[in-house]
Each structure stands twice: as structure tokens, then as C-alpha cells.
């Protein structure tokens, strides 16, 4: 009897279409067009359908929250993997954007569709100015400072009893109806997702990546690294402030909880799960992680345990993340061959 030992090896073949240069494809047939467009189409249509599929008001609200986290995750992934700045600034951005929108709505009487864009731009300017001093520094300083600001602002608001103190600012105007409310943020997520993806492949995006890769070489090329980091931080904080401004309009309330640590931490987990550096992956990560953490709400604080276990499992078993994994599966045939 022969031993049943048989050596096998995985062979991978590129399924890809002929690529002339990045971004320009030589399309040969409808099949190839579908191959290219289908994943994007599924993603866009899928996200656009979500509000229609949600059964209850509660779950529609969850979709809105998911989108806010998706923006934060996108902002985190962009800064961490394309500029080299590890940001824990989610809470800082949400809080700044949130309180700004609240002030604009309350004192100037601006409707949400005006106060949100304004709060996004002004908030991003404010956040960037606050973070400017630590931009020339390398290492963990940026992460630490982004984490400290929300704690600091929270205490200031509490101690000085400004901006509504611990009660927060109440009675903020809401959206005309729930469709506007939902589709506004969904379209924003899609716009920023494809916008950032485009940006990182353009020349300006290349400079961002160069700053991450080798900042000394960027300086030797006659470019100020602080200047480019400033632009990148502006873009990233704009995404966060947009989320914050939107958040206070759906809850019609801006309070200290807009500075909650969750906004800083969850994006990191979502990025790990989705696949760091892919931009789409982390957004999907947010779409998976936030509902799970909502489902586990019944377990009270115990859900942190589940949440930690999921994260741990992802780090241990699939450290590349969902997106990287499925991209590989999509682009390559895999078969076992006998050796």
C-alpha cells in the first residue's frame, strides 16, 4: 500500500485584465468591464439600499451612526497609511465639528444643510491649527496630542460651564425628514471614500505617501513636510468634523459625550478588521463593527469583551484584513496542484 501522503501546493494565477498603466485599462470586452466595475457597483448600490432595507427607526439610526464612524475610519486610515500620522483624534474632530454646528444652528439659526458644511470647514481649520504645533515632531507625539485635546476641552467646558456645561446645547434643528437625514450622510461617505481614493493616487497623494515613506527625502526635494502634513490633517479633520456636525443634528443635542473616547478607538479596530491602507476596507470594517457593537448593547459593559475577542481574532488569524483578503481572492485564481 502506498502512503497517502501527497504533497500539495497552492498555485496562484492572476485573473487580471491587461493594465497599461495605473488607472488606464485596456478593456477588451464586456466581461472585463464587468470584472472591473462590478465590485464598485455592488458597494455603491449596497450602501445606497441600506436605508430601504432597515426594518425599524432604531436600525435606521444605526446606519447614520455607522456612516459617522465610516468617515472617522476613513480619516484614520488616510492619515495613518498614506501620511504616516497615527491619529487618535476621532473624538476631537467629532466634538469640534459637533459644537460648532450646534453654535451655528442656535445662534445664527442656520439650517442643517448650511451649518454642517460650515462647521466642517471651520472645524477642520480649528483642529488643524490646534494640531499644528506637533506636526513637525516625529513619533508618537501626534497620537498623544490628538488624544489629549478632547479630554482637555471636555474639562474646560465642564469647569467653566460654557457651551451649556454638562447639560450640553439642546434644541438643535433636525433634518427635514429621515430620507434627507440618511441619504445626506450616505452620499457624503461615498463622496469622501472615492475622493480620498482618487487623491492618494494623484501627484499630491504621492507626496503624502512620500512624507510617510521618507520625510528627509521630501525635504531634500525642496518641499516642506509640515506644509503637506497640514493639508493632510485638514482633509482628515474635515471628515471628522463633518461627522460631528451631522451627529448633533440627528440627536438635536450637542453634549460632552461628543468627545467620547469611542470615536477615537473604534476607527482603529475597524481599520484592522477591514484591511489597513485600502480605504474601502476600513469603511466596510465600520459597517461591520458598529452594528455588532449595537447588537451587543444588551450585554451592557460585557460587550467590550466580545468586541475585544473579535478584534483579537482578527489580529491573530487574518491580520491582513477583510479587504486585502477578498481583493486577493477576486483577482487571482487559486488551485491546489500536486507536487
Amino acid at each position: 500500500m502506498k502512503a497517502q501522503h501527497e504533497q500539495r501546493r497552492k498555485e496562484r494565477l492572476d485573473r487580471g485584465i491587461k493594465v497599461r498603466s495605473d488607472g488606464i485599462y485596456a478593456l477588451m470586452s464586456w466581461r472585463e468591464l464587468c470584472y472591473l466595475v462590478l465590485p464598485r457597483l455592488v458597494l455603491i448600490v449596497g450602501i445606497l439600499m441600506l436605508p430601504l432595507l432597515m426594518p425599524t427607526m432604531y436600525w435606521q439610526r444605526v446606519i447614520s451612526i455607522v456612516c459617522i464612524y465610516a468617515l472617522l475610519t476613513l480619516s484614520f486610515d488616510f492619515l495613518a497609511h498614506f501620511v504616516g500620522l497615527v491619529s487618535l483624534g476621532g473624538a476631537f474632530f467629532i466634538g469640534t465639528g459637533g459644537y460648532l454646528a450646534a453654535i451655528l444652528n442656535q445662534s445664527l439659526g442656520l439650517p442643517p444643510l448650511l451649518s454642517i458644511p460650515l462647521a466642517t470647514v471651520i472645524g477642520a481649520i480649528i483642529c488643524t491649527l490646534f494640531l499644528l504645533p506637533c506636526l513637525p515632531l516625529r513619533g508618537v507625539y501626534f497620537a498623544i496630542v490628538t488624544l489629549m485635546y478632547p479630554l482637555l476641552l471636555m474639562r474646560v467646558i465642564e469647569a467653566l460651564n460654557i457651551l451649556g456645561g454638562t447639560d450640553g446645547i439642546v434644541g438643535i434643528g433636525s433634518f427635514a425628514n429621515r430620507w434627507v437625514e440618511q441619504y445626506f450622510i450616505i452620499i457624503m461617505v461615498l463622496l469622501f471614500l472615492f475622493g480620498v481614493r482618487r487623491l492618494v493616487n494623484q501627484d499630491l497623494g504621492l507626496v503624502f505617501r512620500a512624507v510617510k515613506d521618507n520625510d528627509q527625502a521630501v525635504r531634500a526635494s525642496g518641499m516642506s513636510i509640515t506644509y503637506y502634513k497640514t493639508i493632510a490633517v485638514f482633509i482628515a479633520s474635515a471628515m471628522g468634523c463633518l461627522g460631528g456636525a451631522y451627529l448633533v443634528h440627528i440627536y438635536m443635542w450637542a453634549g460632552l459625550s461628543t468627545f467620547a473616547l469611542d470615536f477615537s478607538i473604534l476607527p482603529i479596530a475597524a481599520t484592522v478588521i477591514g484591511g489597513a491602507g485600502t480605504l474601502v476596507g476600513p469603511v466596510l470594517g465600520a459597517f461591520i463593527l458598529v452594528p455588532i457593537s449595537e447588537l451587543l448593547r444588551a450585554f451592557g459593559t460585557l460587550r467590550i469583551v466580545f468586541y475585544a475577542l473579535i478584534l483579537l481574532a482578527f489580529i491573530v488569524f487574518r491580520s491582513e484584513g477583510i479587504m486585502v483578503y477578498s481583493q486577493r481572492k477576486y483577482h487571482q485564481f487559486e488551485k491546489w496542484v500536486r507536487v
Partner: peptide, 13 residues
Amino acid sequence: TRTFQIMRPYFSL
């Protein structure tokens, strides 16, 4: 301008 003795390309590009 200057070159670096320890070369500094952008390795990921």
C-alpha cells in the same frame, strides 16, 4: 541639492 550616503528612496513607490 544633495544625495544621501544612506540612500533614501521611497521604497513603497
